[in-house]
Amino acid sequence: METVGTDRHHPSDPLDPSDEDRHDDLLSELLKPLRLTGVFDSRWHVRAPWVIEGDAEPGCAVLHYVVQGHCWITADGEAPVELHTGDLVVFPTGTAHRLSDRPERRGVPLRAGLPERHPGTSGEIVIEGTGPESRLLCAGLHYATGAATGFYASLPWALVLDGHQVDREPLLRDTLRLLAAPDRPVGPGDRLVTLRAFEMALVLILRPLLRELAGTPASLPLLRHPGISRAVVTMATRFAEPWTIDSLAREVGMSRSAFTAAFRELVGESPARYLAARRMQEAGRLLTETSLPQSAVPARVGYRSAVGFHLAFRKWFGVTPGEYRAA
């Protein structure tokens, strides 16, 4: 299993302060657009022997936090990984996997134990065996796929933080413990609180892991390329400016051809598509989270033509800006 954890890799060369600042800026901007649209959370009380097989969950990050005991994470063609009390694993893009008390087990699909897993609801799995007991907090964190950057989609399929690493993030540790508590307070706005708590937990989980990846060139070479990483931050923060490929290349001190080729190689898509995605992310946010008049949105996200914005928006989201706001 290709996993990442901050105690499992070591940077090949030290970063100077300017590198660290640039990487922090880049990581912040890459995480900023990621907003959860719904969460299904569940608490598992299992005794060996047990196994749960989960399907792929597109548009959903999957989180497992071991409250007590241990479990194995396995997937076809991957090496198994054992988790203990306090450890957690996140599958950023919802890759199919299985959890069990022993890595060689095959068995019950998740949909059999939890047939309904709608965002905004909770569930429970109880398996009565004769062996050691384990308790887990599990969650499907649904996000708007249009808000997930190409960088996010390129993350390793499984990211692990062990208990010591979680303890070094007190806010994350305490949030997970609260969410895992069987007697968690319930009241008005509970689902919204749960949604935002998991959203904060996801960012707190990704932050140390991404910092480690920044020091591992083979994992995220984007963070080691000053021109392309600067371009990504520029498009993330200054998307309303009238950029062209030529002006972006000049901004980062590269030729057009070198810039385009390196960007596509490191980011996985063209600069034009990346910029369009960032503009559409912001347009969607403005339409759903603010009362800004719809007529003012195009200029705020870099479009000089309302017709051009309307056509681009409909092509990206499949609906008009008005329909998107109403929904």
Rank of each mutant, 00 (worst) to 15 (best):
A197D: 12
D55Y: 01
P185S: 05
E104K: 05
T244H: 03
C60G: 01
A240W: 11
P170V: 03
V90W: 01
L161I: 07
R279H: 08
E2M: 05
S154L: 07
S154V: 04
T288W: 01
A75D: 10
D25G: 06
I205Y: 00
G140Q: 12
K32T: 14
E212C: 15
E241D: 14
T149S: 15
V4F: 12
L195Q: 05
R250I: 03
L176A: 07
H97T: 01
P182F: 10
F309V: 05
P115F: 03
A79K: 11
R8E: 12
F151I: 14
T6Q: 03
V301S: 01
H23C: 12
A181S: 15
E212Q: 15
D162N: 15
I205G: 00
E104P: 00
L31Y: 07
P115H: 04
P58W: 03
A272P: 00
D19H: 08
R224P: 00
A181M: 10
C138L: 01
H97C: 02
L172Y: 05
L34I: 13
S12R: 08
L204A: 13
A180M: 04
P221M: 09
F91P: 00
L159V: 04
R207P: 00
F91C: 08
R105S: 03
E323P: 00
A79S: 12
T320G: 14
V39E: 04
H64Q: 02
T320A: 10
V62Q: 15
R224D: 14
L292K: 05
S12G: 13
G113Q: 08
V46F: 01
A214V: 05
D183I: 03
V203L: 00
P208M: 02
V89N: 02
E57S: 14
H70Q: 15
Q294R: 11
A148I: 08
L202K: 04
G302A: 01
L206W: 02
G86Q: 02
E78M: 08
A79E: 14
R177G: 13
G268Y: 08
G189W: 04
T85I: 06
